[in-house]
Amino acid sequence: MKTLLNVIWLVLSGFWLFLGYMLAAAIMCVLIVTIPWRVAAARIGVYALWPFGKEVVDRPTAGVGSMLGNIVWVILAGWWIALEHILSGIALCITIIGIPFGIANFKLVPVALFPLGKQIVDKR
């Protein structure tokens, strides 16, 4: 079932969200100082490409550095990726079939805003 959901997600919004995250990762590389944020952008981008069967959890070792890094992330890229999730979620909620995928997009907004201090794990 999760494979079917992932394929539908990929077609409806996953690919475009993935491209947004990869654009953010490329921008982070260009700015040199923000290269560590590229890793977070790529990690969450791959998750946004194929999210069903995985979940985002808080990393227990995250501290003040993650919080400060998230502030920089929100300023540079997080706000427009979160906006991408919100717009995609609204568009998907127009149809009955798209409502679960729209809700999944809304659940990704906090991750898009604050990706540092999070890790992606398989659901068990």
Rank of each mutant, 00 (worst) to 15 (best):
Y47A: 03
M67E: 10
L17T: 02
A82G: 08
F18W: 15
L68G: 10
G69I: 01
D122R: 13
I71T: 09
Y21F: 14
V11K: 05
F106S: 05
L49C: 08
I27N: 13
V39S: 12
G65R: 12
L83F: 13
T61C: 04
G63C: 02
Q119M: 15
I44M: 15
L10Q: 09
L23C: 06
L19E: 01
W79Q: 10
S88D: 09
M67T: 13
F52C: 08
P60K: 12
I86R: 10
G63E: 01
W79Y: 11
E55T: 14
A42K: 15
L31W: 10
A112S: 15
D122C: 08
L68P: 02
I120C: 05
V30N: 08
G89T: 07
V56I: 12
V111R: 00
I75H: 05
Q119E: 15
V33T: 08
R43L: 12
I97W: 12
G53K: 07
L10D: 01
V30Q: 10
Q119I: 11
I32F: 12
F18Q: 04
K123A: 13
G65Q: 08
E84T: 02
P100W: 10
R38D: 06
L108W: 00
C29G: 12
L68H: 05
L92E: 06
A24W: 01
I27W: 14
A25F: 08
P110S: 07
W73T: 00
V74Q: 03
L113G: 01
E84V: 00
A112W: 05
G53H: 05
V30P: 06
V57G: 01
I32Q: 06
L108H: 07
V64K: 11
P115D: 01
S13T: 14
I81M: 14
V111L: 07
L49P: 03
A25C: 09
G65M: 09
T34P: 03
L17V: 03
